[in-house]
Simulated scan of single mutants.
Amino acid sequence: MTVYLHKHDLPDGLDFGKSVAVDTETQGLSLVRDKLCLVQLSAGDGDAHIVQMDRDAYNAPNLSKLMTDPDVVKIFHFARFDVAMMMRDMKITVAPVFCTKIASGLVRTYTDRHGLKDLTKELINVDLSKQQQSSDWAADELTEAQLNYAASDVLYLHQLKTILSGRLMREGRWDIAQGCFEFLPTRAMLDLNGWSDVDIFSHRMRRAD
Rank of each mutant, 00 (worst) to 15 (best):
C99F: 09
C99N: 05
T100H: 04
T100N: 04
K101Q: 14
I102T: 05
I102M: 08
I102L: 08
I102W: 04
I102D: 04
I102G: 09
S104Q: 01
S104W: 00
S104L: 03
G105W: 05
G105A: 11
L106W: 00
L106K: 00
V107D: 00
V107K: 06
V107Y: 03
R108Q: 10
T109I: 08
T109C: 06
T109E: 00
T109G: 06
Y110Q: 15
T111D: 00
D112L: 11
D112N: 15
D112R: 11
D112Q: 12
R113K: 13
R113G: 12
H114D: 02
H114E: 01
H114F: 06
H114L: 09
G115K: 06
L119M: 05
T120I: 12
T120E: 01
T120N: 06
K121F: 14
K121L: 13
K121D: 11
K121M: 15
K121V: 07
E122W: 03
E122A: 12
E122C: 08
E122M: 09
I124V: 09
I124C: 09
I124F: 02
N125I: 08
V126L: 02
V126E: 01
D127F: 05
D127Y: 04
D127S: 10
L128C: 05
L128E: 05
L128S: 03
L128D: 00
S129Q: 14
K130E: 11
Q132S: 11
Q132F: 13
Q132A: 13
Q133C: 08
D136N: 10
D136S: 12
W137P: 05
W137Q: 04
W137M: 10
A139M: 03
E141K: 12
E141G: 04
E141D: 15
E141F: 12
L142R: 00
L142G: 09
T143F: 03
T143N: 00
E144A: 11
A145D: 15
A145M: 13
